[in-house]
Design a protein around this nucleic acid. Structure first.
Length: 262
DNA sequence: CTGGGGAGGGGGCCC
DNA sequence: AGGGCCCCCTCCCCA
């Protein structure tokens, strides 16, 4: 039963990256005392190529513009191999992939998962590092290719990008929602999310509070509940030292005026 | 208005 | 690589 990662890691540096546009309003809530593990904006400086991963409109991605300078993604770092991000149109709604609201259960086709590798010395692009290496050796007399280059995989439905295909695939599930509740038809990205949802139908509450008789269907909700039994709660106001069981309550507290004069 | 429960989402880690 | 599970978080709603 005990697993190594059951050890709680409060305030660890390992924070989710809530930095996407749809979460900007949430990010505004985050106090400075809760630092975010944001990706360094210049972190890709070590990258020497920006393979393009376009999942939903893969063929569009292969229609590379003649020059990387035509890339339309402003936040990406300057590079002679500027990323040709054809998958991150701001609306993410062009074409017909939105006709089902992105909820199609069609699984991603593995053969569409092609990151692109761009030559450092010309505008040519290849779908494999070995091909690029061969090109650079034969056409530019460079015996090595930056093998350390990490592909960047872009999500077609949003602006998120990942350095591993597995992470992208996991993220894409949040668009495809392949786990469907047999009772009500609601769709979820993960099987365990579906299981948690099914508990709302069955009434199962496997997570019990050791301090009272309450039980919960969700571990996170039990954890939040346990805070109510604690005298010193997890989230503290920086001004009045009052503590709260939830971040949202601290936010409400701040918004209601305690810290407004500061 | 505040506190708390319910439901759900995302990224990361381990197997 | 994928499944399972974790932690952390948010939003909504209600007492």
């Amino acid at each position: 039963m005990p697993r190594s990662f059951l050890v709680k890691k409060y305030y660890s540096n390992k924070k989710p990256c809530y930095r996407e546009s749809h979460l900007d309003s949430h990010a505004a809530y985050i106090p400075e005392s809760f630092p975010r593990a944001e990706l360094p904006p210049g972190d890709s400086s070590a990258l020497t190529c920006y393979p393009v991963f376009s999942f939903f409109n893969h063929m569009d991605s292969l229609s590379l513009p003649p020059s990387p300078t035509t890339a339309a993604s402003p936040p990406l770092p300057p590079s002679p191999l500027g990323p040709v991000d054809l998958s991150s149109s701001p609306s993410c709604s062009s074409g017909d992939e939105e006709e089902d609201g992105g909820r199609t259960s069609d699984p991603p086709s593995p053969e569409t998962l092609h990151p692109m590798f761009h030559c450092m010395y010309c505008s040519k692009s290849y779908n494999s590092l070995s091909t690029l290496s061969n090109h650079q050796m034969t056409q530019h007399q460079h015996s090595t290719v930056e093998i350390s280059a990490r592909p960047i995989f872009h999500c077609k439905h949003c602006t998120k990008e990942y350095t591993s295909l597995g992470a992208l695939k996991m993220h894409i599930r949040s668009h495809t929602l392949p786990c469907v509740c047999p009772t009500c038809g609601k769709a979820f990205s993960r099987p365990w999310l579906l299981r948690g949802h099914i508990r709302t139908h069955t009434g199962e509450r496997p997570f019990s509070c050791q301090h009272c008789n309450r039980a919960f269907a969700d571990r996170s909700n039990l954890r939040a509940h346990l805070q109510t039994h604690s005298e010193v709660k997890k989230y503290q106001c920086g001004s009045c030292s009052r503590t709260f069981s939830r971040m949202s309550l601290l936010h409400k507290h701040n918004a209601s005026g305690c810290c407004s004069t500061h």
